[in-house]
């Protein structure tokens, strides 16, 4: 090819950064935790009932940090109000939908938790169903927000929401297991949550991991066999610049090691289950980093 070098170009910042990647992680973990919480009250799996409050509390706390982060990330923090004013609302913008979800989802969780505390199975079930739909939507939309940018070729894939949801599911479980483990330190024996449950959750997580790896494989296929931009995205962004969060943090630490831990006889050990949970929760942050920041990286040079 003819030699050619760029000797001048304007410079651009990458628009969304650490705050957004952390926010995606928090929303994901929250949605994941909440799904667990709903197992007992919504899906009728009684064994999981003891987890419900811990899980929904984790979910709520995670989600309460979100608006603070997001508002503070705005150029004009006070104007977050505009997102809630009907005349301003823009139906085609995924962010506009997201705002609604971020507002309603924690509220629905609180209502649900109220009925859980009141021990009202009917209302807990109904509000739980609403909340779980909102939980999934909240996280689905974070994928969509990134997906609907045809110019960001690493993000512009229909797999995005699925990848996000799967990540949410496993990181939610991982995080919650860790929370339960910590919680068990401080609570009297009778209130402690049974280790068997944690093992069972870890098992769920393992299925999630398998599915996540499968999705990543699909994504890998698309980028490596894709158009020039996608190939570049894979070779430069994922394998070079974002190698650590992509390859090491997400794939190795967050998926492969936990998978090994959870598929071998080691899995019976409590510390291994907790370790695997921790690794998954951290590993998913790697995905949020490369997904958000890496997706925009190459274009900042254009």
């Amino acid at each position: 090819m003819e030699e050619s070098v760029v000797t001048y170009n304007a410079f651009h910042h990458v628009a969304w950064g650490t705050t957004i990647s952390v926010y995606f992680w928090l929303v994901g973990a929250s949605a994941g935790s909440f799904v667990i919480s709903s197992f007992g009250w919504v899906f009728g799996l009684k064994r999981y009932k003891p987890l419900a409050m811990t899980a929904s509390a984790t979910a709520i706390v995670m989600l309460l940090i979100v608006p603070i982060l997001l508002t503070w990330d705005l150029g004009k923090p006070v104007r977050f109000i505009y997102l809630l004013i009907p005349g301003y609302w823009h139906s085609t913008g995924p962010m506009a939908w997201g705002t609604l979800l971020i507002c309603t989802y924690p509220m629905s969780m609180m209502v649900y938790s109220y009925f859980v505390i009141k021990n009202d199975p009917t209302f807990a079930r109904i509000t739980g169903i609403v909340a779980i739909v909102l939980a999934l939507s909240t996280h689905w939309y974070t994928g969509v927000v990134m997906e609907l940018n045809p110019g960001r070729f690493l993000n512009h894939t229909a797999l995005a929401p699925l990848l996000f949801l799967t990540g949410a599911f496993i990181s939610g479980i991982g995080l919650m297991n860790v929370v339960v483990w910590v919680r068990n330190f401080f609570l009297p024996e009778e209130k402690k949550i049974d280790w068997a449950l944690i093992h069972e959750m870890a098992q769920f997580m393992m299925y999630g991991i398998v599915f996540d790896i499968f999705l990543l494989y699909l994504d890998f296929m698309q980028t490596t066999y894709g158009n020039q931009n996608e190939v570049m995205g894979h070779d430069v962004v994922l394998m070079q610049v974002f190698r650590f969060p992509y390859l090491w943090l997400e794939l190795v630490i967050g998926l492969i090691i936990p998978l090994i831990l959870l598929t071998t006889p080691l899995k019976r050990s409590k510390s291994v289950a907790i370790l695997a949970s921790l690794l998954v929760a951290v590993g998913v942050y790697g995905m949020r980093v490369w997904w958000v920041m890496g997706g925009q990286y190459l274009q900042s040079f254009y």
Binding site: S4, V5, V6, N9, Q228, N229, M232, V236, L298, Q299, F301, Y302
Partner: peptide
């Protein structure tokens, strides 16, 4: 687009 990155 990629040219702007690779050929600097």
């Amino acid at each position: 687009e990629p040219h702007s990155y690779t050929n600097r």
